[in-house]
């Protein structure tokens, strides 16, 4: 039997890894929601990113080109979403679902036509820092993850900084809170929202790539399995603040890692209850701890100049 110390270490390291795809997608979604656009197409963008990264890495053997492909596909998917929701003023929830189905179907179709079977790639390597990676406990916890994991966590302070310390962040928030006032001051709402939604697409696609060529090194149809929708929920959970989203993603992932151990250790808890735990706990925390935050006032409202 493993010692408790090792188990806790295992849970923490698993939780850190599991949170990775959520962070990419949820940081992008935070930006786009703060500017007033609800993007429910995240899951579809993740699947397309996951496929593009995998396919290019598989054909070329280069994980870097794979990531580039994910960025490109995310850019296109994000632009399309922005065109529909910003330019054409479409109902955001519905068009997001449309993009989800589009990404789900297209990634599946391409997978069947171009690959045909599940295969594996080298993918993005794990990090190895001299000295640090060999530290007994800290090494495993922090310094031996896949490079994609570090990218995800680096995004959190970056998005926080952009939102809170730059003029661009101010414009994003203005577009999400009071677009008419911002517009009268000369801020182009369309430009801001185009930028955030497109960036959101890129980050979601990278989130997908963090699965397909980062953590798993395989592609399978519908491999994100609802992850993108959980990422959208995490943005609400985190009250539209990057740090709140990070805490939500970590909580959800740690409890998920914990329930895996609960089963492995053979604790007398039915598997079904263990599997439910992350969802139940997240809801409980949402109700009891997280303050009733107010969403951006203009969220889901297409901007039409009066």
């Amino acid at each position: 039997m493993e010692s408790w110390g090792n188990i806790l270490l295992g849970i923490a390291a698993s939780g850190i890894r599991l949170a990775t795809p959520y962070l990419y997608a949820a940081m992008g979604e935070t930006l786009s929601q703060r500017s007033g656009v609800l993007n429910l197409g995240v899951e579809g963008q993740m699947l397309m990113g996951a496929f593009a990264a995998f396919y290019v890495a598989y054909r070329t053997g280069s994980a870097g080109l794979g990531l580039l492909a994910a960025v490109g596909v995310g850019l296109l998917m994000g632009l399309a979403m922005a065109f529909v929701s910003v330019h054409l003023h479409a109902e955001q929830g519905i068009s997001g679902i449309g993009f989800y189905l589009f990404g789900l179907g297209l990634s599946d179709l391409l997978f069947q036509k171009l690959l045909g079977t599940v295969d594996s790639v080298q993918g993005v390597p794990d990090a190895h820092f001299p000295l640090l990676s060999d530290l007994p406990v800290l090494g495993e916890l922090f310094f031996r993850h896949n490079w994609m994991v570090y990218g995800a966590y680096a995004l959190v302070p970056l998005v926080w900084f952009v939102l809170n310390k730059t003029p661009w962040g101010l414009m994003i928030k203005a577009a999400g809170e009071n677009p008419h006032a911002a517009d009268s001051l000369g801020v182009s709402i369309a430009k801001v929202r185009y930028a955030t939604v497109t960036l959101g697409g890129v980050l979601s696609a990278l989130g997908g790539a963090s699965l397909s060529i980062g953590l798993l090194k395989i592609f399978q149809q519908n491999m994100t399995s609802g992850l993108g929708f959980i990422a959208v929920a995490l943005v609400y959970f985190g009250s539209w603040r990057p740090v709140g989203v990070l805490l939500g993603a970590l909580l959800f992932s740690l409890v998920n890692a914990l329930q895996l151990w609960v089963q492995v250790l053979g604790l007398p808890i039915p598997a079904d209850f263990a599997v439910m735990a992350p969802y139940v706990l997240t809801i409980v925390v949402l109700v009891l701890v997280v303050q009733r935050a107010r969403p951006p006032a203009a969220l889901t409202k297409p901007f039409v100049r009066e």
Partner: peptide
């Protein structure tokens, strides 16, 4: 038992 037929991660 992970509670899903599709959650590869």
């Amino acid at each position: 038992y992970i509670g899903s037929f599709s959650d590869t991660a």
